[in-house]
Design a protein around this nucleic acid. Structure first.
Lengths: 187, 187
DNA sequence: CCTAGACGCAACGACCTGTTGCGTTAAGGA
DNA sequence: TCCTTAACGCAACAGGTCGTTGCGTCTAGG
């Protein structure tokens, strides 16, 4: 927090507004959300929101960034499938969480027309790939994995079906499905 | 067309409105498109649009359906990779087409709050799977493919990376990438 | 306790929304 | 060719939303 007066009240307003936007995102499409509706839900006057966040996109970016920063810890279970199962299952949980689902949806929806959100999408993806590199490195060192499919390809092959089922397909996203995907990719 | 007077003028208006919505979709996010802006772009009075399409969603559904109906012909090149290459390349072209890209984006964005569009998304996917069944059936008959990965899993493993790169990743979608995906999935 | 940064409030003009009544145009059948 | 009427154009409307402004109030932080 770099503002000159980050204390009590400001912090409360910020938290209330963030939470209000998240709740709005769950129940309306992004295009029907306005600064006013967020302010009303947060129990805050609209001018307070207008003054701190120039546009709704600014506010959304802040909220999305804050939620994305909670990095998924990279596990070390001893085997590649074990590591992948752990990380992918937490991805599934994030997709099923209403807030996480809403944010990923909006990022997809708005990236074509918002350079800022497009860049955020890409950064988030790259961060995920970077987090997984050690997992693959360990697996290659153990001989569980050859050098053939690159890290990037592996991550895409593993995570793409999750995004597909969540965004396109709308089929159930289960742990069993995760196991099937892992088996197919590594088989 | 089941209306009582489908002739010249009505057809022209409908075509103009459809095209106008497509162009709007390319340059604005869905939420900033209104019946009025579509009507203005189509060179048609807004009441004409309001009377024929109750809501923007109705109009969008009609346009999307019309574009989706243009089925991708199922090829028979003699080999599985040949068939898949052909179909997936045409998918890539559709993703790169501004109109196709916009429609897929909106379907993802609005499906969470619009049962009609959600159902359309699913139907479109199922149609794609159904179209590919003969391809896999021929491949299995030729012994190019075992019974192990089901048709559904194959389609997901093949197409998911395309959707991922288009919607999430925003990485380049090339024919070379398609070949890599096919090789990884069938290898 | 005092100062100043943040918030609440009321009001505003501008814009966008969807509807209605009525006049005009042009399909499509006779 | 003419006639009927479905479909469109037009103007006006009430209602709502948008973002801004000036000013008074509160409260965090020194």
């Amino acid at each position: 927090m770099n503002s000159s007066r980050p204390g009590g009240r400001s912090a409360r307003v910020k938290a209330a507004v963030h939470q209000a936007l998240l709740d709005e995102l769950v129940e309306k499409p992004y295009g029907r959300i306005g600064i006013e509706s967020v302010a009303a839900r947060a129990g805050v006057h609209k001018t307070s929101v207008y003054r701190r966040w120039a546009t709704l996109e600014t506010l959304f970016a802040e909220v999305a960034e804050e939620l994305a920063v909670r990095e998924v810890p990279v596990p070390d279970t001893g085997s590649l499938v074990g590591d992948l199962r752990t990380v992918m299952r937490s991805s599934v949980r994030l997709f099923k969480d209403p807030y996480g689902a809403a944010i990923s949806r909006v990022l997809v929806a708005e990236s074509d027309h918002s350079p800022a959100l497009a860049e955020m999408s890409q950064r988030h993806w790259e961060r995920g790939v970077a987090n997984l590199r050690p997992v693959f490195a360990r697996a290659r060192a153990r001989g569980e994995l050859g050098p053939e499919p690159t890290d990037e390809r592996l991550v895409e092959a593993l995570w793409a079906p999750l995004y597909l089922r969540r965004l396109v397909n709308r089929k159930p996203l289960t742990y069993a499905y995760v196991d099937t995907v892992i088996a197919d990719v590594l088989g």
